[in-house]
Write a protein that binds this DNA or RNA. Structure first.
Length: 374
DNA sequence: GAAACGTGGGC
DNA sequence: TGCCCAAGTTT
């Protein structure tokens, strides 16, 4: 396809207006303080599908814990997942860890500066490669994220511009000597002015160049995408406290959803089952043990990306069998310190918070009475 | 190309 | 309340 000529003709004016606006309006963000390639890379991975305000709460702590590529590469994966706890899309943390090891092994601990090499690192796609190459290394590469897609959809008044068309348009505008600043400015414009709803066209440096604004309905671009309704499942989990006052946890398989995180074992209820029966079946299938299910401890609603659940955690007691991991990567009888240390998803973290005070004393399931300490 | 992959804020 | 969606990547 060909880029509309207006963009080509107005290139200089558009670049100039955007950069002047950004010099004035750029938010002070933690990852804009020191632009080392490592810091830029970590920020860009954290920012994938994640709002700036949330990343702010993790970024400094993560860099304190893993100050260099070498430190990240040398750390146990579990520590990286712990630093990621609550951020979501945990595959990113595993990929970041693996990529750090690749960078140490193959690039002497320095991030590669070219898009093609960056792109080969796990967790680095077209956007992140362009962002790191341009922001950290000054390469003239486009970085097309959701903000840029929306801004360009409006500038071009195209309901659903293909990625290639957006990259072509951005590349046409991209100033070779300020590519990183330009990319950041374009994202900043989308995030703060050209927002999904109620775009602030009065404050927009690109208003004179925007076809959607001329048409009078910028909010119509890009066209919303219809989504199927999320299926719902009943999920059950077991809080099994053994005679040592420790609770049974399982580590989710690395390749599964929430891979590598620790959980209270359990699973989905099937259509013809009670929740109690489902829990007994799951513990037999996953951990090879027979349990007696006690009273529910907590119930919560939670929405994942593509389904919703009602999660009920039950007290339970080990009746027979020896614990083995049939459908998990590891298991552990956890004390209070383990509960705090191990990485968990938000739902299991809530159960853990509730369970922690019950540990360390010899409690019998369903009894609620402490025996004398040993 | 479509589906999978977390979480929480905003309306 | 329920739905949208955010600095995307992988399979």
């Amino acid at each position: 396809m060909s880029t509309p000529s207006p963009l080509r003709e107005q290139r200089e004016a558009m670049v100039d207006a955007l950069l002047r606006w950004f010099a004035e309006a750029a938010r002070p963000l933690p990852w804009r303080e020191e632009r080392t390639p490592y810091r830029v890379w970590v920020a860009e991975v954290m920012l994938q599908q994640t709002q700036v305000e949330k990343v702010k709460r993790y970024y400094a702590a993560f860099l304190r814990r893993f100050p260099t590529v070498e430190a990240l590469a040398a750390a146990p994966l579990e520590a990286v997942l712990k630093a990621w706890e609550g951020l979501g899309y945990y595959r990113r943390a595993r990929a970041l860890h693996r990529a750090a090891q690749t960078i140490v092994a193959e690039y002497g601990g320095r991030l590669p500066d070219e898009v093609s090499a960056l792109r080969r690192l796990p967790g680095v796609g077209a956007y992140t490669a362009g962002a790191v190459a341009s922001i950290a290394f000054g390469q003239a590469a486009p970085a097309v994220d959701g903000n840029v897609r929306r801004v360009m959809a409006r500038v071009l008044a195209h309901p659903a511009p293909p990625r290639a068309e957006i990259e072509e348009a951005v590349s046409l505008l991209l100033p070779a000597d300020e590519a990183g600043t330009f990319n950041e400015a374009l994202m900043e414009l989308g995030a703060t002015v050209c927002r999904p709803r109620h775009p602030q066209c009065r404050r927009c440096p690109w208003r004179p160049f925007c076809r959607a604004h001329r048409e009078g309905a910028p909010e119509q671009y890009p066209a919303p995408k219809g989504r199927p309704a999320l299926p719902h499942y009943d999920v059950v989990a077991a809080v099994i406290i053994g005679e040592e006052g420790r609770v049974l946890l399982a580590q989710r398989r690395a390749e599964d959803m929430l891979g590598g995180l620790w959980e209270f074992p359990g699973g989905k209820r099937e259509a013809d089952e009670t929740r109690e029966a489902a829990l007994r079946r799951e513990l037999l299938e996953e951990m090879a043990i027979h349990i007696e299910v006690g009273e529910p401890l907590i119930e919560m609603e939670h929405a994942y990306t593509h389904f919703r659940i009602t999660l009920t955690a039950f007290r339970a007691r080990l009746v027979a069998g020896e614990v083995r991991c049939l459908e998990c990567d590891a298991f552990l009888w956890a004390d209070e310190a383990d509960l705090e240390r191990l990485p968990m998803s938000v739902t299991d973290r809530r159960i853990a918070t509730l369970v922690a005070p019950l540990l360390g004393t010899r409690l019998t399931a369903g009894e609620g009475r402490a025996t004398s300490p040993t």
